[in-house]
Write a protein that binds this DNA or RNA. Structure first.
Length: 436
RNA sequence: UGGCAGGUAACUCAGUUGGUAGAGUGCCCGACUGUUAAUCGGGUUGUCGCGGGUUCAAGUCCCGCCCUGUCAGCCA
């Protein structure tokens, strides 16, 4: 008999099936043993009644949490079950009986769970978060694939920094050369956009920032679209459409997981077009009003970059993600296009997620003038020879173009409604955390 | 990198004015025909983060270090 998966049991009511998986939890009551079995697709309760088969009962009663088991039984409807069905066990094969599984159904601390991350991902909530991550990734890829974008991944080893070397991980590259792990595929995306018109990269990104916050990882995944003949406003349109498609997909495909996580889905359901678009000037005014009302501790001044409390304040003023554009050029990268009428403003855009999840998109319009970029490289003290290939993009058919990057983990944390991004990736890499 | 909180059993924690170590959970044994973190009875577990100091005596007080969490800076 072939294997049936728990999420398909509803189609097999009354039939005998074989489930292959692990013991999630066990309870017994007199002559009954209840095996909570998981197989990766769900959890189902398997019931063994002692008078029916005493040897089977003794075996079922003896296995410990996370023992690997193959269960044969009859599927029956049961209103007491959260998935509507149960299994009456007729046979049980124990591949390995284990008794020292460290993670119990009771409470544990963060450090212990992180040390046991390789096992923790079997737990219901972690499983649900990672399923949501999967759906976020799938929604993102479908969105770009269905909108004329070509996937053109960028290298992970890079020869130089795009904004200084302090936040880069250095790698020895055959002795003489040094390589760095990429912190963004953006410069390369600008090249692929000139080849394909609309391109995107999706992959891991590395930042050696010594940040210890609930929003930071040293290794995280980012999706970065880049579009030729597009401006910063087009990126707000594109980002908004992408976010809406992610929210919709998560709400459609991951209802069960959202329920497991006790996520308040009404805040996700309330997200619709259009997202508010704030000029940096107006954002500054709002922050200053917030300070005047005593809702912010520090008075924000024009020219600065938003701190976490500022971002939270701006995003909680609306029930939706909020775009901010026209950041001061002085706090942005060398490659940004600036507003012709206000050269002190870069055509950068950020998207702030609601509920204090912070910046999930950062991007904008790129400078298309060769002369301006050469000037900017000097101004930022960057070696021009390293960027010659990048400047070629302005020598040969330069066009206005724009793009952005979205962090998969921050987006997933927001969708799942969880506190810390470390739970949104199977094996997080953080300052002081390289294991398991 | 800085502020704050913390490090005691496998896990989560308690430990009084300094007097020689506790609970719950897990695990093992037993009871129970419907359990949902099952319940009930019995049993089992210690480098009190590390090093130094004060003291007759330190988990407890003092100094240094290490580690963890959290907030902030930076960013996605």
């Amino acid at each position: 008999m072939s294997q049936t998966y728990i999420n398909q049991l509803k189609d097999h009511i009354g039939e005998s099936v074989v489930l292959k998986g692990w013991l999630y939890n066990k309870r017994s009551s007199g002559k009954l043993v209840f095996l909570q079995m998981r197989d990766g697709t769900g959890i189902v309760q398997c019931v063994v009644f002692k008078p029916n088969d005493e040897a089977l009962y003794d075996l079922a009663d003896s296995i410990g949490q996370e023992s690997s088991i193959i269960v044969t039984g009859t599927v029956k409807e049961d209103t007491r079950s959260s998935i509507g069905v149960e299994l009456d066990v007729t046979a049980l094969e124990v591949l390995q009986n284990t008794h020292d599984y460290p993670i119990t159904p009771k409470e544990h601390g963060t450090e212990f769970l992180m040390d046991n991350r390789h096992l923790w991902i079997r737990s219901k909530k972690q499983h649900a978060v990672l399923k949501i991550r999967h759906t976020v990734v799938k929604a993102v890829r479908d969105f770009f694939d269905n909108n004329g974008f070509t996937l053109a991944d960028t290298p992970i080893f890079t020869p130089a920094a795009c904004e200084g070397t302090t936040t880069l991980f250095e790698v020895d590259y055959f002795g003489d050369d040094k390589a760095y792990l990429t912190q963004s595929g953006q410069l390369y995306n600008e090249a692929t956009a000139a080849a394909f018109g609309k391109s995107y990269a999706f992959g891991p990104t590395f930042r050696a920032e010594k940040s210890k916050t609930r929003r930071h990882l040293t290794e995280f995944w980012m999706v970065e679209p880049e579009v030729a003949y597009a401006g910063y406003e087009d990126m707000m349109d594109l980002g908004e459409a992408m976010i809406l498609s992610i929210v919709e997909r998560v709400l459609t495909d991951r209802q069960e997981e959202l329920k497991t996580l006790e996520r308040d889905t009404t805040v996700l359901e309330a997200i619709n077009s259009p997202f508010p678009r704030l000029h940096y000037d107006d954002a500054v005014k709002m922050l200053q009003e917030g300070f005047a009302k005593g809702e912010l501790e520090n008075n924000f001044e024009w020219g600065g970059d938003f701190g976490a409390p500022d971002e939270t304040y701006l995003s909680t003023q609306h029930g939706k993600p909020v775009f901010v554009h026209h950041f001061p050029a002085a706090i942005k990268g060398f490659y940004f296009e600036v507003d012709k009428d206000r050269p002190e403003c870069a055509l950068g855009i950020d998207l702030l997620a609601p509920e204090g999840y912070g910046e999930i998109i950062g991007g904008g319009e790129r400078a298309s003038s060769l002369e301006y970029l050469e000037e900017q490289l000097k101004h930022h003290d960057l070696p021009q020879e390293v960027f010659e290939w990048y400047l070629d993009l302005r020598r040969y058919g330069s066009v206005p173009h724009a793009g952005f990057g979205m962090g998969i983990e921050r987006c997933t944390a927001w969708m799942a409604g969880i506190e810390h991004v470390r739970e949104t990736i199977p094996f997080p890499r953080m300052l002081y955390r390289l294991k398991p």
